[in-house]
Design a protein around this nucleic acid. Structure first.
Lengths: 233, 233
DNA sequence: TTTATACTCGAACAGGCGTTCTGTGTCAAG
DNA sequence: CTTGACACAGAACGCCTGTTCGAGTATAAA
């Protein structure tokens, strides 16, 4: 009969703690810890157990071990799926697309999301974001179609967003208009009789939303990135 | 009498070779080499000599050594003065502004420029650029005014550019039109009777440039970055 | 020459290090 | 129950590694 035990791809809490320590140590010292340092900090009493666990982590693709080399382990990209690596780079998952007819993903503020497919992510330098921003809950959307053109945003652009359900005046937000079945990016202004959504392009007309009409704020726009397809050859 | 010997801040060719090897090894393995690995690769026959040299490099601020720790040395920022460190981040200087009335800076392709004021620069993740792009000669311009609005580019946006004096069809270029005294960003198309410059916004009309009119291509647009002023408080 | 400093070399030491082996205990399937 | 896979502990082995020491060479100042 088939084994119904723990699947070999799973990670135990101890594995997570080891990966977290590896990332933290690497970040601080620019080198991996020794096995005995892992013992001490993760709370494992034998080097052989750490060796045992490291072999498992290697088999699962999180690290690469170099035989008989002190501190001979390297973190792979896959570790980003488990722990937030605090470096100069912020790893932001592209969780979906934004288009006129598509509903916007519903993400909770303050929660970090991870994508199964790591090809869909963008790395942003921390220096490009406000200093206060930790950025753990940022996510990105790929713009499909030309419906955001009056927000000065093109087909193919990447918008980096921060989860939010409300906004202050002057902030650019991603909103979902249920009665128009439309997602859009606009500057947000609250007024006494409702809301005004202003396009980034000042030559286009703002949209007024009466108080009784529905309006769902899905997040604030933090950054827009447009990659040109130059230099393909 | 004063010593006229080698000044203690100078770096011997051997020191340079060691620093180059340290940076290369660190880049490849995410850890520093051992002293004996330095011996072998740099061509020094005794570990004590390497130890001797590492102490000098530490005293001069290029590395930090951790006592009695295997591979216990860390590269400091100062190493960038000596060797080109290839990392995940690309440091792109903002060399000026781009606006309707301002001439565009004249930069040579293939030359790396550095700004004296390091506050004016953006860090871009290498993963956001095409794999082939080395990126040493990239520079950035800050957009001033709304004159680029038909290129879907806003006031305050950052455009990352690659120096170029010619372009292929479909590439977005920064051009200077001497007879109109204007800088602009447009998609470039060469035709038999001249050139056509198409705005990124398809609803705007393209500009046709006759063969006899002047047109100076200053560079290709690689990326556009728009930072929102959200989260200021 | 003498003296001082800088640099190099080889060897050895002591502890750090990855690795291996034996043994124990747990848990679920047969 | 027995069996086997899995997880953990402890000890030991032997190489790896940073460090230290004594000695030698070279250059330049006194």
């Amino acid at each position: 009969m088939m084994m119904v035990r723990k699947r070999s791809e799973d990670l135990s809490p101890k594995h997570i703690r080891i990966l977290e320590f590896l990332a933290k140590y690497q970040e601080e010292y620019d080198r991996p810890p020794s096995i005995r340092e892992i013992c001490a900090k993760v709370g494992i009493s034998s080097t052989s157990v750490v060796n045992y666990d490291l072999d498992q982590l290697e088999r699962r693709g999180f690290i690469i071990r170099d035989d008989r080399v002190s501190r001979g382990l390297r973190l792979t990209e896959k570790i980003k799926e488990v722990v937030q690596v605090v470096g100069d780079l912020l790893h932001i998952p592209i969780v979906g697309q934004i288009a006129a007819g598509l509903p916007l993903p519903d993400l909770q503020p303050g929660v970090a999301y991870i994508t199964e497919n790591e090809a869909h992510a963008v790395d942003i330098a921390r220096s490009l974001l406000p200093a206060k921003e930790k950025g753990n809950d940022l996510y990105a959307l790929e713009v499909k179609g030309d419906s955001m053109i009056d927000a000065m945003i093109n087909d193919g652009d990447i918008v980096v967003m921060k989860p939010a359900v409300e906004a202050r005046n002057g902030e650019m937000v991603a909103v979902w208009l249920p009665d128009k079945n439309e997602a859009t990016l606009k500057y947000f202004y609250k007024e006494k009789d409702g809301y005004t959504l202003r396009p980034a392009n000042p030559s286009m007309k703002p949209i007024h939303i009466a108080k009784n009409r529905q309006l769902e704020i899905k997040g604030k726009v933090v950054m827009v990135i447009r990659k040109m397809d130059t230099m393909k050859l």
